[in-house]
Amino acid sequence: MHIERVELITVRMPLIHPFTTSFSTQTERRPLLIRVTASGQSGTVTGWGECVALAEPFYSPEYLEGAREILRRFLVPALFDWQAAGRPVAAATVGSAIEHVVGHRMAKGALEMAILDAELRLQNRSFAAHLGVTRASVPSGVSVGIEKSVPDLLAQVGDFVAQGYVRIKLKIKPGWDLEPVKAVRERFGDIGLQVDANTAYRLSDAHLLRRLDPFDLLLIEQPLGEEDLRQHAHLARLVSTPICLDESIVSAQSAADAIALGAASVINIKPGRVGGYLEAARIHDLALAHGVAVWCGGMLETGIGRAANAALAGLPGFTLPGDISGSDRFYANDITEPIVMKDGEVAIPSTPGFGVEPLPAALADMTVHTLDLTS
């Protein structure tokens, strides 16, 4: 495969409803898309990647402007240098071409994603087929932010339950935990329910988190700091609700450490956070081998990322519903044909690559910045 062109395209997508976590309130997303034009024996294709870095470095050290700069100055030039040296360019070689750049997994993962999409399109093969996925759809869960009041929360959850979502995830923080969980469980009965703290607690808050045990939650996600593996292992012995790690898992190596320490019985795999879909698949394989459940988390992706996440979640180790909601959960208009949740499931695309691409009119309307990095 020969890379002909690489472009960075930033789009602006207002959220239907503000999404609040323990660290920020978002009213819009500005996804950074990567468009790769590549050629091979079967012709010329376009591959798409999506960087999940947020506008500010509150969820992770990476952020939108930084990701764009890393791609512009270091990652894309390194890929062109690799190609100019006569080395093969493929999704499997992207990691080697850019490994000298320390960190920046979200930016790296987006570049690998675009190359993978182009490679699979040249092969006329879907991402699901590449992974060996045989199922046609995956169960759809939805994430609900921290609302202004419990009645507002119940109204939000009620709407999602009526739509058919099979699992609800509530964002929590100290002072917004027991009351909303209790209210949702009492109102909606035995629906699949889990909570996400986004590192908002400390080990000294174990007594607070233990009060969630009676509500039969699927898991408590990332209650402590991302580097606190030992503390998570200790917390897991103090509460009966399963502990799930999110921000702590940035690679297969960190997943192996967490499993060995007993810090997590569940892992949330976000492909962008761990450096791409190939590393995400490796984490899945590792967890499956150790009997640790995994599920696919979301980062308010466009249809590009949602389609890819749906295929990944079709692997056998993904035994819990992921944050693979329909496009209309967040956006009035997606950049692609909308991803649709029907009867609690999202279909896995079966067409080449990730199976979706931006609609030209939507792309033109939403684009706020473009940069051509062609060497």
Score class of each variant (00 low, 15 high):
A347R: 15
A256Y: 11
A107T: 09
S42G: 10
A364F: 04
H234G: 00
P31Q: 08
L235D: 02
A97V: 07
K108P: 04
E65T: 15
I191L: 15
R187A: 15
D117G: 11
I9E: 08
I304T: 01
F160E: 13
V6C: 12
P18R: 14
S254W: 07
P88N: 08
V250D: 01
V166H: 01
G262S: 14
P61C: 08
D334I: 06
K169E: 11
C51W: 05
S39T: 14
R68P: 00
E147D: 04
G262P: 14
F58W: 15
D323M: 11
L79A: 04
L111H: 06
N198K: 02
I172M: 03
G175F: 00
I267D: 01
V195A: 10
F80K: 04
E65A: 15
M13A: 14
T370L: 13
A97S: 10
P358A: 13
L312G: 07
G305N: 03
I16N: 05
E226G: 04
E279L: 06
R202M: 02
N198H: 00
V102Q: 09
V340N: 08
F318V: 10
M113S: 15
I220W: 02
E227G: 10
F58R: 15
R68Q: 14
A114R: 11
T351Q: 13
Q83W: 09
F19Q: 06
P151M: 05
A129Q: 14
R306P: 03
D328R: 13
R210Q: 15
L116W: 14
R105I: 00
A263R: 02
I267T: 08
S327N: 03
D117R: 11
T93I: 05
G49A: 10
A53D: 05
G272I: 08
I283F: 01
V239R: 06
R210H: 15
C51K: 04
S327Q: 02
S137K: 10
R273L: 11
I34P: 01
E147I: 00
T319G: 04
A90K: 06
R105E: 04
R35E: 12
V181D: 02
Y165W: 05
A347E: 14
V239H: 05
G262K: 14
P14Q: 11
A293I: 05
L288I: 04
H130T: 00
G275I: 09
A256F: 11
L54W: 01
H234V: 09
F23Q: 12
R273V: 07
W176E: 07
L371A: 09
V52S: 15
V181N: 00
F215I: 09
L120Q: 03
W176Q: 07
V346R: 06
M299F: 08
A118H: 06
I168G: 04
A91Y: 02
T44E: 07
A84G: 03
Y201L: 10
T44G: 01
P223A: 13
L120G: 05
L261N: 05
G132P: 03
A84P: 00
G86N: 13
V133E: 00
V266I: 15
E186H: 07
S140E: 11
L111D: 02
H17V: 03
N124M: 05
A129W: 01
V11R: 02
D177P: 08
A310G: 09
